[in-house]
């Protein structure tokens, strides 16, 4: 029983990390219809920049305390990532906005590779130990079941950010402009929306979210390196599709579901398959779910039906 409960907690934590990343994916996709392959890599850059800033802060102001130091890391990393998102959109994606989907997609793969290479040039391939400024000493809400404060923080941060984004998109002027642009950016510009600015803004927000996600992930595992974005990127994309891409609540739902499926699946698959499968197949779940969802419900769990033609 404790084991199952623990697996559920593990799933929730991993799932909310996926959700955090998926929110960025889903925002960009919702507006542009583009899978920003580089999203995971912006996450990685965010984490590494934060690491740099935190190390700097720890050296310069050793008495700052844990949380202000972390905040300083975020204050540096989020704008850097935002700038990066803006530059990428401006330089690589904007020119291809009216091209068919293949072109921006291939460019996005290239950008993702480029970011990883740049990170390797700047930081090398080493694994860095990321300061765990939020406590990782586990609490025991139920006997035998553990959850660390950093994990609770991740759960809260992803829920809060999702709520904030929903408010932004549905209740504000900018949000209305975003929805209009998502519907059809040409008509939106005819209606007086500066579509280019809105798309840039979306990228900037998405990249900022990625940086926060990167710092959270690095804080949880206490590790940061130049390829840390790839796997969360892929999983989070799956989560976004599962929930219904373009739908913010869906990203959250999809992330949590995927996290649960992975942890419970990997935890119990051996019993279910009579020893044929085991935890070495953990990474397959995401891809299988992705395939199944896309085949039977291409719009995801909460997605709206969109027109067939792109």
């Amino acid at each position: 029983m404790e084991t199952l409960l623990q697996q559920i907690i593990n799933g929730l934590v991993v799932g909310s990390m996926y959700a955090l990343v998926a929110l960025g994916y889903t925002m960009v996709y919702g507006i542009l219809g583009l899978i920003n392959f580089a999203h995971g890599d912006i996450l990685m850059i965010g984490a590494l920049v934060a690491l740099q800033a935190i190390t700097f802060a720890q050296h310069t102001w050793p008495h700052l305390g844990a949380l202000p130091t972390l905040a300083f890391g975020l204050v540096v990393a989020v704008p850097v990532s935002m700038l990066m998102g803006y530059v990428i959109e401006r330089a690589a994606y904007r020119r291809l906005r009216n091209a068919p989907r293949l072109a921006p997609l291939i460019t996005a793969i290239g950008v993702s590779f480029l970011l990883q290479t740049i990170a390797m040039i700047v930081w090398g391939r080493n694994y860095y130990s990321f300061p765990q400024l939020i406590s990782t000493t586990p609490l025991q809400p139920v006997k035998g079941v553990y959850i660390a404060p950093v994990q609770i923080v991740i759960l809260i941060v992803s829920a809060v950010l999702m709520a904030a984004l929903i408010v932004l998109v549905n209740k504000t002027r900018i949000g209305r402009a975003m929805r209009a642009t998502a519907e059809n950016h040409r008509i939106a510009s005819l209606m007086g929306v500066d579509a280019n600015a809105i798309i840039s803004l979306t990228f900037v927000i998405g990249s900022g979210l990625a940086a926060i996600a990167g710092v959270m992930i690095a804080s949880n595992y206490g590790i940061a390196h130049s390829t840390m974005g790839t796997l969360p990127g892929l999983k989070a994309f799956t989560a976004a599709v599962l929930g219904g891409i373009g739908n913010l609540g869906g990203a959250m739902l999809g992330g949590i579901l995927l996290g649960l499926v992975e942890s419970i699946g990997a935890g119990y698959i051996e019993q279910f398959s009579f020893g044929f499968f085991n935890s070495s197949y953990q990474d397959i779940f995401a891809f299988v779910i992705l395939g199944v969802v896309l085949v039977f419900r291409p719009t995801g769990l909460l997605g709206e039906r969109v027109a067939d033609r792109a």
């Binding site: 219809g33 583009l34 899978i35 068919p100 989907r101 293949l102 997609l105 892929l234 994309f237 799956t238 599709v241 995401a286 891809f287 299988v288 992705l290 395939g291 896309l294 085949v295 291409p298 792109a310």
Partner: peptide
Amino acid sequence: FPVLRLRGDYLAIVTLGF
């Protein structure tokens, strides 16, 4: 077979998964 109905980016990501 399963990906026939998918196009563009969805297709790319499912083949990647494959």
